[in-house]
Design a protein around this nucleic acid. Structure first.
Length: 535
DNA sequence: TTAGGGTTAG
């Protein structure tokens, strides 16, 4: 109804100028008022019903919301509105009373005359999906026309996404698509989006690409968001080769796909992970040619790819380039760059970067220190490594498992056994364990130095922690305990229960160490048993 | 407009 501006001459409906009296319920205002009042009653009833349902799991005393709806609208001489039904469905779903929905749908189908809006069905399909009532969702979809509603791709997409969430329901999809054709629903790009998303979720990226190709062959537009989705899924795949990925990338680019920063970033990450630093660099250059400024993350990833390729000249170029572009290197960038310097054995420069990082507002972290510590240990610069470990602690950077393992290996490599033992003590206190081979080396070196008793103590301690020493440790102990047994004759190291005869042979002749050995024997047997049980 | 995506080690 079009309202005219109020004027004394034109508006006959103003009480003052009205020629004919009319029923108090005939104006739009009254109509709206009636509907609002009816809704108010319905909402009140729904509130009571919700409270009842929270106290009454058997649903025995719920007022019938449908009859409340009908009566409240009747009281105000209005026809029930679609919104009132929508409200009813929402109330029922919020109180998990899905069994009350079918009678209301029957009423809606057979009694009401209005064209039911599609969003109501969309809502119900989603709710049925959420409650795992797949068949109900499908039946309702087929039934939509009976409610004087022409279903569109919206309902179809909703139903498909419900089905696609569940692997077992995927086989229903073709039938639904076929039926939707008979229902005059026109499939859109969004429908392909739903299906492709499902295929990606189930790691069937190959099929997703096939579907994208079908979509293009059928004359649909290439959808950028679908391409982005496939790229991100594709880059998560383990069995996808970089050749496949680059091939797909080239194809969709030729078809007009405009990648965003995240698409480039996903592809670069994938290529670097695959060891294709050079290809990652090409993509970075492509990005620049496309007028998209790569951000620090893209640069850092490509930098790490180039460092992995040992192309240090390129790494330097890239680092300079990102600075020129105005990007600010962050901790990841510095760590990658420092790693590159360490790989070139340019430790002096790497340490200089560490020193200057903080002046540039970037705080070093455990990765920075681990990288440098490993390089220093490798270069046998043990005193510098010790100093750096002290420094990191002073700066509040907590050493992690790797820090200890790096330092421990460094100490053993330099035959600093006593210091290694002290560090190992510190590690064990933090419940960090060395690599098995490192531990074996420690035991081996201790035995070499005649510290057999201490080695046994250490062995006992670590076995009590459920740590499994390796073959070399047992062999070192056996050989240095004066036993005639060699490692090949024992099966203890393989965590297989040793024969009693072997153990007694092993024990024999070491009166001094016997007590220790016996208790170790118990621990090892217990431990071996546990491990075998779990295997 | 922003975040997301990124580093080391066996």
């Amino acid at each position: 109804m079009v309202r005219h501006p109020l004027s004394k001459t034109s508006n006959k409906y103003l009480r003052k100028y009205r020629k004919w009296p009319h029923s108090p319920y005939k104006t739009l205002w009254h109509h709206n008022f009636g509907e609002n009042q009816a809704m108010r009653i319905l909402k009140q009833a729904a509130k009571t019903s919700t409270m009842a349902s929270s106290h009454d799991n058997l649903n025995l005393n719920h007022p019938c919301l449908l009859s409340t709806l009908i009566h409240s609208f009747k009281t105000y001489s209005c026809d029930p509105t679609p919104n009132a039904f929508y409200f009813l469905f929402k109330t029922l779903s919020h109180t998990s009373r899905l069994h009350d929905i079918p009678p209301i749908l029957d009423h809606l189908e057979h009694v009401e005359k209005f064209e039911t809006p599609e969003y109501i069905f969309g809502y119900l399909i989603r709710i049925y999906g959420r409650f795992g009532k797949i068949q109900e969702a499908v039946d309702l979809f087929y039934r939509i026309p009976k409610f004087r509603c022409a279903p569109t791709v919206c309902s179809l997409n909703l139903l498909l996404s419900v089905l696609c969430r569940n692997r077992e329901c995927l086989n229903m999809v073709p039938q639904i698509l076929l039926k939707s054709q008979h229902m005059n629903i026109r499939i859109e790009e969004s429908t392909f989006g739903v299906l492709i998303k499902a295929l990606c979720r189930f790691n069937r990226v190959g099929f997703a690409i096939e579907m994208l190709n079908c979509m293009i062959d059928d004359g649909y537009n290439l959808d950028d968001s679908i391409c982005s989705l496939i790229i991100s899924s594709l880059c998560e795949q383990r069995d996808m080769t970089s050749v496949d990925a680059l091939c797909f990338w080239g194809d969709i680019r030729r078809l007009g796909f405009c990648p965003g920063v995240m698409d480039y970033s996903n592809l670069i990450r994938f290529l670097v992970r695959e060891g294709r630093g050079r290809d990652a660099l090409d993509i970075l250059n492509q990005m620049k040619e496309d007028g998209i400024k790569p951000d620090i993350v893209c640069y850092t990833m490509v930098l790490s790819g180039v460092v992995a390729d040992r192309d240090y000249v390129k790494a330097d170029e890239l680092f300079d380039e990102l600075i020129v572009l105005g990007l600010v290197p962050d901790i990841y960038t510095y760590n990658v760059y420092i790693n590159g310097l360490c790989k070139q054995n340019n430790l002096e420069e790497a340490l200089k970067i560490l020193a200057s990082m903080e002046d540039l507002g970037c705080k070093s972290n455990v990765v920075t220190y681990n990288t440098l510590l490993a390089a220093l240990c490798k270069a046998r610069e043990l005193s510098k490594a010790r100093g750096l470990m002290k420094e990191m602690k002073l700066k509040g950077v907590e050493p992690n498992l790797h820090t200890y393992r790096i330092m421990l290996d460094g100490l053993i490599g330099n035959v600093e056994i006593i210091e290694a033992c002290l560090l190992l003590e510190e590690m064990l206190e933090k419940r960090f364990y060395p690599r098995s081979s490192t531990f074996d080396n420690i035991i081996h070196e201790m035995c070499q130095k005649g510290l057999v008793k201490e080695a046994l103590e250490l062995m006992k301690k670590i076995v009590a922690e459920s740590f499994a020493p390796g073959a070399r440790a047992w062999e070192a102990l056996l050989l240095n305990s004066g036993s005639e047994l060699t490692y090949s004759e024992t099966t203890l190291s393989g965590l297989v229960k040793p024969k009693e005869s072997q153990l007694s042979k092993w024990m024999g002749g070491f009166s001094e160490l016997k007590a220790n050995l016996l208790s170790i024997q118990d621990d090892v047997l217990h431990f071996a048993g546990t491990v075998r049980f779990h295997l």
